[in-house]
Design a binder for these strands. Structure first.
Lengths: 113, 113
DNA sequence: AGCTCAATTGCGAAACTGCGCAATTCCTGA
DNA sequence: TCAGGAATTGCGCAGTTTCGCAATTGAGCT
């Protein structure tokens, strides 16, 4: 293997590490969408969106094809949904973990007063 | 929610977007480990490892406790394994997708000669 | 107390990322 | 064919990340 797997994973995560790109992937999960529609759904300048789309395209996560004067993007292959779901699960687990710790600490403080 | 979910996801992915941090999480999946052992397993300077561990600690993904003169790190709560597995799956899907496309293109070229 | 090893932190330099503006490409309709 | 909108690209600036060195903290040993 020329590129170790953990490098590839890190690279993948780095690609996903931007709110706009997450939004794009989430939106494309429902159905393919023209840029115009993505633009309407996400708060971002056209040029910024293009750049993020370019990143996703270069990485092979989405593919684009022209339809007349507009460009339509769609997810390319892989199970992105699963990854996003795992992220969501992990986030909620981490947050509840922190909450438990917090309430525990608060309880301890109350008792010590 | 003060922070939109997609922001939190992006943040999470950004945290994971470094090879050393990925390695650390992978190693900690098996069992808690002292820094010394992580250091032996990963190619990185002690100071660099410390910094990456600090990032993971601040984010709440790992926790550390002293044991004598060494510090032992362990995964904190959440199901990191699931996320890493999803990443691995997605990567292989993307790579095979590219391979198929490649062989398709090569086939087409051969035919056109 | 002084020494040493383990781990962390502070800091400055180098590399990278994201953003917006201006310019460009590609298509469509007059 | 040319004016217009859709989308992309090139480019420079500002902000962030990463890295290694030097300095610091904490624990065990004599």
């Amino acid at each position: 293997m020329s590129v170790p797997l953990y490098e590839a994973k890190a690279e993948l995560f780095r690609l996903l590490g931007h709110p706009v790109r997450i939004r794009v992937l989430e939106l494309l999960q429902d159905k393919p969408m023209p840029v115009r529609e993505l633009l309407a759904a996400i708060e971002v300048e056209p040029t910024g969106l293009s750049q993020h789309l370019a990143v996703l395209r270069r990485s092979g996560m989405v593919s684009a094809h022209r339809d007349g004067s507009t460009v339509v993007y769609s997810l390319a292959g892989g199970d992105v949904a699963e990854l996003l779901k795992a992220a969501r699960t992990l986030l909620t687990q981490m947050l509840t973990g922190q909450n438990e710790l917090l309430t525990e600490l608060l309880g301890a403080e109350r008792e010590s007063r």
